[in-house]
Amino acid sequence: MTNLVKLAVEAEPVSAPPGDVQAKSDSASAAPAAAKAVSAPPAAGDTRRAGSRERRSAMVQAVILPAITFLIVLGIWVVVHSEVSRAIPSPVDTWHRAVEMLSHPFYANGPNDMGVGWQVLYSLGRVSAGFGLAVLVGIPVGFIMGMSPVFQRAWQPLIQILRPVSPLAWLPIGLLLFRAVNPSAIFVIFITCIWPTLLNTAAGVKAIPKDYLNVARVLKLGKLEIARTILLPATMPHVITGMRLSLSIAWMVIVAAEMLTGGIGIGFYVWDEWNNLNVKSIIVAIIIIGLVGIALELVMNQVQNRFDYTRR
């Protein structure tokens, strides 16, 4: 058991030591002194101190609690490694592997041996291509579906049948059509992204309050003016929600798709490392995939803040 504590400390040198109760009391006693030193005029001091106390408790919530969870998971990992299966590498070995992988992410020794940075970039490239195509097709078609009940009735049943199908089922069709793996993977991502984008856009168009369109009619706005001043801004929240959903699913699907297609990409990298029994690399790759997913989410957040009127 002493071994366990030692490992945990080693793996997580930055965060608080496992005896986190003591850590909390330490930071609590150190912080008021700092606040006192900073706070200037006595009149404003009280409220400012109350404010800094609130900020501090927010800090505890945001940093300490996740750190505890992290340590617990790390502990379980250590137990699994030492008691259940030696095939699962220890956190320390994995950490060393991570340092190794991330210190040269963009090396390239031929097509079969490239850094993890390249693998991620190739996957991101496929996702962007498929996602971009789906947005280009899905938004206009979604608009037509939202505006025309005839079109909606004509297409809805087909879409309902195709929507629940795993996008990977389309991979053979892609391979057959394009006779190359790269376009096939892009095709799979396109299929992944098209449904949420299209259906959310259509729902957004249908959800436009009739009053906005009445305003447009009273003002005698032309068709293009209606599209620009009313339809686009009004549907933007829905459209972006659809894009957000698409992108996050696409990032999950690309890993699976690349496992099947091979070549360069984070998905095939995971599969390749499995074939080489490099479990450490797989665990590092899983964490990298997660972090990239968060990064994509942040990008979409920025897009939403910029174009979604409900966020301003």
């Binding site: 009273v218 801004p233 009004a234 933007m236 301003r312």
Partner: peptide, 16 residues
């Protein structure tokens, strides 16, 4: 047409 402007019950201002 704008010669018969309407004030709607729920104001109908464009929120963006």
């Amino acid at each position: 047409g704008p010669d018969r402007a309407v004030v709607f019950q729920n104001h109908s201002l464009l929120p963006w």
